[in-house]
């Protein structure tokens, strides 16, 4: 091995070791756990059970509802983030007075960690003291206070608490999306827009025929990151509603946490973890395949 190679391996080693110890190893342990019975309170009964845990959790209605909700949460939140970010990125990309102020405002949510954001929004969305409710009541828009986090009426898979948490997630995730898209926008040559102008394209046409196609690589990365993060999201749902009311805002990560650390059923929690792993793997594989397709062209 040449000296240069040794040096390279040495430089990479620390990060690799950390990833292995803190990332890969626990993941493998957890996957193994999902195929064993693992009851903390009754350790004599622990042993290999194959797919039993998975069968058990899939037979639990609450769990299946949780999977559905995880998917709905993720898709809806990502949809809104991307759409709004596409719009806002264009806005702050343009030249106008007060742009710096607007930019600061838009990026503020980035400096707020999700847990802190949840704490703030719990207060803002508390039915009794919410300033939003107060304002809407005063303006005569509503008659009864909106129970943002506790109203259990549903329309299909949607409910008010779900939409509330999605709104907070979108708020928290916008800055990153905007930064990505802004970077992408600024790498689109102005002359393409001018050519489109000459070709008779209006604002929408320019967006669909120039902006979107050229943003594709950026959007792909963004979507991949968001989906992988989204399926495993924990903080907001746990802090703001704990999965309620009536399990309406439960997501896989929260369910897993409760199952493991409250009910002490680590085997079922591990099975849930395994399912999350499968979901994120699908996203990852899809992303890699799409990237490879681009390269092959």
């Amino acid at each position: 091995m040449s000296e240069k190679n040794v040096f390279c391996y040495l430089m990479v080693a620390p990060a690799l070791v950390i990833t292995l110890i803190l990332g890969i190893y626990p993941m493998i342990r957890s996957m193994v756990m999902s195929f064993r019975s693992y009851d903390l309170l009754n350790q004599d009964k622990n042993g290999w059970v194959g797919l039993d845990n998975y069968r058990q959790v899939m037979a639990d209605d609450r769990f299946v509802q949780t999977i559905n909700q995880t998917v709905v949460f993720t898709f809806v939140a990502i949809f809104f983030v991307v759409v709004i970010a596409l719009f806002l990125a264009q806005v702050i990309n343009a030249e106008f007075r007060g742009r710096a102020v607007l930019r600061t405002l838009i990026f503020t949510p980035w400096f707020v960690p999700p847990v802190v954001a949840s704490a703030i929004w719990i207060w803002l969305l508390n039915a009794n003291v919410s300033p939003i409710n107060h304002f809407l009541l005063e303006a005569g828009v509503i008659e009864r206070k909106i129970r943002f986090l506790t109203d259990s009426d549903t329309w299909g898979p949607f409910s008010i608490p779900m939409m509330s948490i999605i709104a907070v997630r979108v708020w928290n995730g916008l800055p990153i999306a905007i930064v990505f898209i802004l970077a992408g926008l600024q790498s689109i040559p102005k002359s393409l827009y001018e050519a489109a102008d000459m070709d008779g394209a209006g604002t929408f046409s320019k967006f669909f025929h120039v902006t979107l196609p050229l943003l594709r690589p950026v959007l792909l990365v963004l979507l991949a990151l968001f989906f992988m993060n989204g399926f495993g999201h924990f903080e907001m749902n746990y802090v703001m509603t704990g999965g309620g009311p009536r399990n309406l805002t439960n997501v896989l990560a929260v369910w897993t946490y409760q199952e493991g650390f409250q009910f002490l059923r680590f085997d079922r929690a591990a099975a849930a973890g395994g399912i999350v792993l499968m979901m994120t793997s699908v996203v990852a594989v899809l992303y890699i395949w799409l990237q490879a397709k681009d390269v092959r062209k």
């Binding site: 001018e194 025929h209 120039v210």
Partner: peptide, 28 residues
């Protein structure tokens, strides 16, 4: 521009990179 019935050839060509030659020409 689109109402002036003018066509322009740019220094950097400004072709739509994701469209085929045919689609580039058909766009207008």
């Amino acid at each position: 521009p689109r109402k002036r019935d003018i066509a322009m050839v740019f220094q950097s060509y400004a072709l739509y990179p994701h469209k085929s030659v045919r689609k580039n020409m058909a766009f207008s």
